[in-house]
Design a protein around this nucleic acid. Sequence first.
DNA 1: TTAGTCATATGACATATATCATGGTTTGCG
DNA 2: CGCAAACCATGATATATGTCATATGACTAA
Lengths: 231, 231
Amino acid sequence: MKTSNEISSCKTCVYRKLLFDSLTDEEYLMVNKSRKEFIYSRGEIIRKEGDSIDSFIYLRSGLIKLYKTDKNGKDHILSLNKSGDFISLLSIFSNSEYKYSIAAVEETKICVIDLNSLRQAVDTNSKFALRVLNRMSRVSDDIIESQFEIRQRQVKGRIAYFLLFLTNKIYRSHEFRLPITRREIGELISMTTENTIRTLSEFKKDGIISMDGRTINILDYERIKGISNTG
Amino acid sequence: MKTSNEISSCKTCVYRKLLFDSLTDEEYLMVNKSRKEFIYSRGEIIRKEGDSIDSFIYLRSGLIKLYKTDKNGKDHILSLNKSGDFISLLSIFSNSEYKYSIAAVEETKICVIDLNSLRQAVDTNSKFALRVLNRMSRVSDDIIESQFEIRQRQVKGRIAYFLLFLTNKIYRSHEFRLPITRREIGELISMTTENTIRTLSEFKKDGIISMDGRTINILDYERIKGISNTG
DNA sequence: TTAGTCATATGACATATATCATGGTTTGCG
DNA sequence: CGCAAACCATGATATATGTCATATGACTAA
């Protein structure tokens, strides 16, 4: 992790519209005064479950995973999030400690705001508070929904679902580089690394994707959609 | 469903302390003016996914399930909730429609408040807004956590986990009546009805529970805990 | 009462998934 | 560069889980 040396402009920040739009200039300045930027590279842990929550975090760029380690030491990934998603909101009002760990899965830039500034803004600006409420519940809804989708499918359906997620939600393209290892894919969709690998290989053999290492090409989108819906 | 004929006193309501404590008398009166009570019996659907959200609901007594139907028509239960838990908060600020269905699994009394009154209170009372924020994120956290716990276990561990949930969270007793059918247990912990039945029978045969129909007695709590932790 | 539905129950069998073993390949780092 | 550690890959096998068939009791509607 390193501190960003040139501070990004807030003018171009998606969160300006998503969240901070409803703040007065004065409130915005107060919140912004405590703002710091950090850059994490692939694999670095941004926050660990159990860490105390003293700040509000949002992603400027990059990709992170939200995950939790079970008592056997096995990680389970709850979600992948990109800039524009909210992550840290999830726990900050109900817990004093993070319930999940956050790690960068690619080079990621975050903004960190002192939690007290945010609380004060929520306290004095109810429109902002509602905005936060709205955004916060959306994060949780997304996690719950994806877990719901995953748990009703079996191996092939889960892989198909994951590929569609990357295609439609993350990259908006039929060609992309897998952002995570096959092991991590398994941790995300609750299956073993071996079966993840096998299933991807099978999709390749069947000609519905092409695959070279991490590079994936969606060749038969409709068929993958079919597998996601039935298998 | 029927309208309650005698209105319960708010004096004894847990939500008075949990949530409405931070309202001024005036605000409370406004919120309370729109309040209505309804009683649902076992099996009745309180809200269906897709229904438009125009009210805020909380449980006065009873037990409900939050569930979602997949495209094959199979139900998946997300959580069981009792009085004191929040349910309707989950979506009301991020969606105009319910994302989950709510049904009574035993005789259940709910209070319904006009959503506009609540919104207005959030709008004018930031302390209340924070309280709502706090409560809301806790609901989601609970669902996400239980899904996390379920998905890392296999059949026996899931049943054990479910029995501990009833013992510790719902009934606070080692003896209770299963509130839901074995089919519903399967829908909650993602396994087939047959395997649910089989596993319960096995627990009975092994002497760690006694079971007569829906009546369960936890005979060897520690052993169940062990199974929940390892299997 | 009778037929029908649903919940519980259990066995036999099919299938999905995990585990174990083993090797090749890439990646990171001193 | 060269080594170690991950990652990727695939087969053989074990195990967990689902599916199908069948039976019984409880309850309900006609």
